[in-house]
Structures are given as C-alpha cells and as structure tokens.
Design a protein around this nucleic acid. Sequence first.
DNA 1: CACTAAAGCGGAGGTGCCTCCGTTTATTAG
DNA 2: CTAATAAACGGAGGCACCTCCGCTTTAGTG
Lengths: 200, 200
Amino acid sequence: MAEAVIIEQKAAEEKPLRADAQRNRDRLVEVAAAVFAERGIDASLEEIARRAGVGIGTLYRHFPTREHLVEVVYRREAEALCAAAGELASRNPSDVALEEWMRRFVDYIATKRGLATSLRILISTNSTLFSDTSGRVSQALRQLVEAAVADGTIRDDVDASDVLHALSGIYSAPDTPEWRDRSRRLVKLLMDGLRFGAGK
Amino acid sequence: MAEAVIIEQKAAEEKPLRADAQRNRDRLVEVAAAVFAERGIDASLEEIARRAGVGIGTLYRHFPTREHLVEVVYRREAEALCAAAGELASRNPSDVALEEWMRRFVDYIATKRGLATSLRILISTNSTLFSDTSGRVSQALRQLVEAAVADGTIRDDVDASDVLHALSGIYSAPDTPEWRDRSRRLVKLLMDGLRFGAGK
DNA sequence: CACTAAAGCGGAGGTGCCTCCGTTTATTAG
DNA sequence: CTAATAAACGGAGGCACCTCCGCTTTAGTG
C-alpha cells in the first residue's frame, strides 16, 4: 500500500531523475501510449520521439529496447486489472477468485492484442518481469494463488510464476475468432489441473 | 505415408518451381540452417543470401519473412521428433504415450532455444502452422491426442490444438536454469488436467 | 536451333533501429 | 549570482530490413 503512489518513475530505490529527464520520460510514456494505440505495437520509435519533442537518443536512454517502453505502457493499463484482485478475493472462495480473475485477465488481454507479442519476449529475457516486487500483475496473481494454496483449494506444488507460465498459452493468436473460447477452455483446464491435487 | 517423400518443396499441391528456383531455395534452406546454428536466430538475412550466392531479393521471394525461413529450417529438424510418435503409441497406453512425447518435446525445444521465440509469432499469425495437414509435429500430436481421447484416457472436450496452445508456456524462458523443471511440472500439470474429466 | 513469354533474379534505395559522442542544461557549492 | 560538474540531450551515421522493378534465365514451341 505504501508504494501505491509511485507510478511514473523507474522505481522507489533508484535515485531521482533530473527534472528535465523526468519530464521527458513522462512525456515519452504518454505519447507512446497514444502512438501504440493508433499505429499498433510496431509503430516507429522515431515517430514517438519526434512527437514527444525529444531526440531518438533520449528515447533509447530511457527505454533501451522497444519492449521496455511497451512494458511501461502496459503496466499503466494493468493497474485497473490488479485493483480487482483484492476485491475478488474478499468476496469469493479463493479458488473461485483466482478463476474469475484469470477470466478477466483473458478479457483484458483480448483488448491489448499486439502488446502480448512484445511482452512474451520480456518474460523470456527477464523472468522476473511479473514476479518481482514491482510487478503489480504478479502481485495480484501471487496473492490469489497463495491464498488458494494456503486454504487447500488448489494443489500446493505450484506457485504464481508456474501459473503465469501456464497461462501464457492464452497469449497465442489473440486475433482469431475462436480465441476467446479457446482461452476460456484453457482457464478451465488449468483450474482443473490446479484443483486436482488439492488438499494433498 | 504417401507424402513422406516431400521435404525440400513448398508443398505437394503447388506447381513445381523452375529448376534454378528450386536449386536456390534448397541452397538457402541449407545455408540458413548453418548460419542460424552458428550465429543464432538473429543472424543477418543478408549474410545468408550472400553465403548462398543469391541476391537478397531472391531470399525474400522464397521466404517473405524471417519466420517463414525459420519455420522451414525448424520443420526439418522436427522430423526426428515426429518419427517417435508412432513408435511411442504402439508401445504404451495412449495417455502415457502422449505424456512421454510431450516430455521429449520439452527436451527437443531445449536444444532449439532461440527458434521458439520466432515460431511463437507464427503460431499467432498462422494458427494452422502446426495444425494443417503438412505440419508434421501437429500430426504426431494430433495422433496421440486423438488416440487418448478415443479410448477415454483423457477428457474429450479438448483437441490437439488446445493442447498445443496449452504447451506454449513451455516456450517461455528456455535459457534459465530452472526452465527444465518448470516445463516438466507444466507437462504433469497439463496431463492431470487432461485426465481429470476423462471417461465423462 | 531460334524465338518468346513467363518465371525468376538481384541489388539499389528508402526506412527504421540503435550507438556514440560532442553539445547543452540542471544542479550544487561557494 | 556564478562557476563547476555531472547529467542529460539529440542527431548523425552505420547497419539490417524489405520492396520494387529493370534485367537475365528457363522452358516451352515451331
């Protein structure tokens, strides 16, 4: 809760940016969100820099790869999803809360389409993307998984990052018509697997 | 069995290439396999063209994207894996055959590392990559899944392409030390889910 | 063999990616 | 307020991607 304030900054531990740097950084994230929405995930980074009124070098200093930029934009959008986790947990049995949250996750991903492709690369490169303490999505998921493991509604030999990896099949082919149904089935399938070994 | 002969060609239905075109195409695939192995999946396509002694335009005519080229190279390497499917099926209960095959699949992917990243994009773009009749891996998987569904050792509301998507979590982070264990657990988890609703 | 149409070739050129480093600007000390 | 210094800027340049189209080669046909 104490760190809920930090949004537009690298992280709490990092030393604060110079005023102009912080300004440019914020500007870039804002413009990038707009340009990604407008032109798709493959939009030219040079266009983003141009429209943000900074040089391309500045963009790269702040975001060494396209994926880093995408990640920050994505994280922003993920806030809402994460906020739902606590609420769900307080109103449902823990396995149901987890299942329902994953269902929302599917819906959320559906709206983000292209972003997923980029993010998957980050999962490979930086396996702590979702797992580190600054990852809000992972925190939400971990909270739900741990609660469900703790009260024995799902098996205890998996952790949140296992579930996340298992979910990554959902990222596949988010454009096809049957995608939503398939993803729903995947969530059911995964939940059955999770419930299977529950309670020892 | 009748189509087992066709390897170095686009497909059976396509009209045959002109002699020089076929020669160049084969050459490109061969060189690409070598260059990918040597320099990694991000090797310069221009280098591949150069080493194959053709212009870059020729490479792009045959393989409109990098992924198409990767796919062809990958398919070649997949032959061995596929050959194992029939044999496993003939020596084991069908669910065990499926599980064992997936285990080998994991081992296989481990050796291919970078390729997976590229291929995942193709799964999104062309959801029939593994599923169409010319996809050997999918044929092997489908054979195993269908056999297991047919004799009721796994649930009947999934098909091979569901399983394939569920498996795609395995492609994540093939470089990390814990990758193999995680993937093993994923296969177990998936199999438990698959067995859960078996026999109605 | 000669000729032709169709198929294929190849590389110049336009675009985006990313690095490197000389220049500019914010911050801090005096 | 000024000077010193560390931080940040920005765009030129080098490289790879990919398209486009004028030129070359092949496979038929008489």
